[in-house]
Design a protein around this nucleic acid. Sequence first.
RNA 1: GCGCGGUUAGCUCAGUGGUAGAGCAUUCCGUUGACAUCGGAAAGGCCGUAGGUUCGAUCCCUACACCGCGCACCA
Length: 723
Amino acid sequence: MNEKLTKPYDPKETEGRIYKMWEKSGFFNPDNLPERHQLGKPFVIVMPPPNANGDLHAGHSLFITLEDIFTRYYRMKGYRALWIPGADHAGFETQVVYEKQLEKEGRSRFNMEPEDLYREILDFTLANKSNMERQVREMGASCDWSREKFTLDADVVAEVQRTFKKMYDDGLIYRGLRIINWCPKHQTSLSDVETVSEEQRTPFYYFKYGPFEIGTTRPETKFGDKYVTMHPDDVRYKDYQHGQKILLEWINGPVEATVIKDEANDMEMGTGVMTITPYHSQVDFEIAERHNLDGEQIIDWRGRLLPIAGELAGMKIGDAREKIVDKLRSKALVTRVDENYTNVVKKCYKCNTVIEPQVKEQWFVKMKPLAELAIAALDKKELTFIPDHQEKVFRYWMENSIDWNISRQIVWGIPIPAWLCDDCGTSHVELDIAATPKCSKCDKAMRRDADTFDTWFSSGQWPLLVTNYPDGQDFGTYYPTDIMETGHDLVFKWVPRMVIFGLYLSKRVPFHTVYMHGLVNDAQGRKMSKSKGNVISPSQLTDKFGTDALRMALVIGNTPGTDLALSEDKVKGQKHFANKLWNIARFVLDNSAEETAKPRSITPGDEAILKNLRAAVESITAHMDNNRFYLAAEEIYHYIWHEFADKIIEEMKPRLREGDSASPGGSAEDRVDNRQSAQYTLRVILETSVKLLHPFMPFVTEEIWQILREGKSLLMVEPWPQS
RNA sequence: GCGCGGUUAGCUCAGUGGUAGAGCAUUCCGUUGACAUCGGAAAGGCCGUAGGUUCGAUCCCUACACCGCGCACCA
């Protein structure tokens, strides 16, 4: 028995050793690949940089597996395969994680100097970054660590700031006083994709407002309301003229209200009449803009009422609601209350705090012209989606894009290279940090904008940044990349931004194919969550069953874009498969030690078996080329176990024994030929099988290859089998 | 309200215009050398409902039902 093929297969003993061997070979870097590859084309995948703020979860394992399969397959096919890893500082996300830690320690970021907070989060992130990198290695990722980038690397920061300046100069970024999503807990604005909408039941109040009855769900914002609006075509109110003034009694005394006719009013909604609060509502703000109306802030940044609320000033808005209704009731201004009303509120996607719309000066990206670039690329078929129905979602977002707020009031991020004048509000974009510009209007010294960029602003440029746009050698060689593999939840968050920045900055799409995977759910198909206690940790699974087993379990039966139910049994089954292959290898080696060269003759039966093998190779290769890894994996599994092991090996056993023969009438020489044909055939099938399986189960296949070739070559760079 | 996806074996999921597939689970049988992390066999499905197209539909079209997800300025 071959002494290296101990039984059973031991992933723990093997994986670390094999990974070190791969890394030492230098072949993760395509520039070091053998000559065969240097003649090939590049094949490039950019890794969605994992957040450097915690452990890898099952979703990470899935994307690492898929991207590694791509990379290993194309590397074996002779491409200069490059998979560029990264780490994301994950601005707001990480700051939220860190703030939770501060809270536990009884501290708060609002009592800290920004520099100290930044330094603490940096230490925290760097510690997590190396943890994350170790876990990516453990998954067997054959990415080029020499090209790894962190989203806060100095060159990244500088390039992102240059992009901001360029967009500003091109009129694609402006500073505007607009309605933004404000999280009162985290004290920052958020983009629309950083909020979640939730349905809630809330009373719908009807108040007497002069001659009108108005409807609202937010009485607490109504103090300053002095415009009453209705649809211009609403016959019920045809006697009131646009601009008409009406004196009426309101919360804190008499008010002179102005009638505004605007089409934003829904005649079906409530009474068709409402008052507007431009500073705390998107619709109201837009109506005010259209008619050039004024407004004022009613709720402060902490979510408390401002002095306009009179005796209720300083009260949290949640507590103030009933008080205001009581007050209106005492003035006989409440007409009725509908208790069974449901509406939708936006919440902070991290802390679930209700978002307060606020008016604030921020930097915005003008999305329409950029989105049009993306739509054009789609129309020209420069971009394809797997599964293809994701294209519709992408297109919808591009056709309905709204300007993107990129200012965040947090320290953990890339500083916005801008200066502001506190006196007159003038802003100035300046890349030179040492500069201390003066206001062009009032000549006063300007203040550095303390805000940082939304992380999507930098990660949107990721394919460019990791290839060292615009002057780096990699940009010339490896950009545009080939495939962007990421979760389908990012189809309208990250993907469009990469497409847009790619088209805007480099005039080319950053990748031609978007491959989207689904969520990894628990065995019953339920979303994993800490509160449900059904989170499956990948490290536990790999500890128990080996990395190869987890990888295979994540791929088999997992169609692109579809969520996956991951069960321990499934992984266990694949551990059995790895062991099966291991035992096959031992059997073949034990029975073919004497001769591996092509024998004098191959029996017709063996020819048929090899022909069948070639058919399997052809079919599997077709699946790989069509990005149908789930089918390829299943077919390899089936071939190895139920064809190779169950049938071929079993049928060959008699032929392999000394002094035995499948053709008893033959001479001793015939019997040797027959045995050698069998040995050769087994060996060919084993080597081919191991190659086919390598992208999926890299560790066990490489280990077997090392034993087969006595350490003289690496399976990782072997040619993919020909059919 | 709009959009997207799903509905196939007990479970998790593939798949195809021409008699339905895998893994796991179940039942029965089988262990002297590759492997019990095994082998052999069996059982199990009017492919969500109703129409339509077709010689033929689980597959294509329409409607509906249910499940999941996403979006939304409904005061």
